[in-house]
Amino acid sequence: MAQVHFSNIGKTYPNGFEALKPTDFEIQQGEFAVLVGPSGCGKSTLLRMVAGLEEITSGELSIAGRIVNAIDPADRDIAMVFQNYALYPHMSVRKNIGYGLKNRGIPKAEIAAKVDEAAALLNLRDHLDSKPSQLSGGQRQRVAMGRAIVRDPALFLFDEPLSNLDAKLRHQMRIEIKALQRRLGVTSIYVTHDQVEAMTMADRIIVMNAGRIEQIGTPAEVYHDPASTFVAAFMGAPPMNLLRTRAEAGQLQLNGGALCDTAHRGEVIVGVRPEDFLPDPAGPVSMQVDIVEELGAHRLLHGKLGPETVTVHVGNEFAAEPGPLRLSVKPGAVRLFDAEAGHRI
């Protein structure tokens, strides 16, 4: 059953700026959907439209089978976790978590029980009477989570909730949020500009760019079969190598060598993930290694392949040095994109 249904949803500001082009898709019951894209791509606008904080200028949005276009945020049966947490600074943790319940006229005893339950789930029991300013970043993040789960909503909305945390804590909270969502089984929409977060947390990723959805798919689909050069370059660190070249006589020509067979002709963009290039003395193409980046478990070789910049991912058993290096490519790993429009061929 589709929990959230976007039917031709679009957003045009009064000044004529089209922040979101009409969009159609569904999010399933219990699914963890991640909206990812660079800043200004419209992902936050889309999320805020779901929350009811931003007016929907075209199309219909339904949550749990009910059209909510004209419904107040408070009545949409959603909960939201904000980037800066938006905790009420003058209220204790207990009151912060319980405020939404209190406004719904739920009896005090019930609120107390629910707040206790949420606090136990989030390891916040010892901090219930602290003010937000007395908490660490990670704890504040948990309070914001608590405020969302205590309401037991039909839909969780996350607006870049981890971007104010340091790298280590971010990693930990990523796992916690995902585990919590699994456990509660609540449908979630999660906005981030961090593709690692998107890859690791999502059941399905929605990649956005310039007010448009570029691709919707599982993390593996988006990673291995990007629908466009934009997705190829945005997902993955380091990103997919994109090399402009020609297909001639049934073969892809790259820096004087024939990379692989192809049915295509003319100018194309070749996409190869860094780990899909293999050092191979008998390989068809040759790159010039300029810098070897040592990462412990593996190494990244940065250099040139003809006029184009490339990055190659090798294991730590491969002793690389600056200089020429012959490469082959894993079978089936080459992706081709239209040289003009950038879409997948």
């Binding site: 408070a74 959603i78 800066n84």
Partner: peptide
């Protein structure tokens, strides 16, 4: 912060409640 009024709206606070419960104490 903008998000405070947004969070309050999602928490079901109307304009009067937001003013009395949140903005004035703040």
């Amino acid at each position: 912060p903008e998000e405070l009024v947004e969070a309050a709206r999602i928490d079901g606070a109307g304009p009067v409640k937001f003013f009395v419960d949140i903005l004035v104490p703040l």
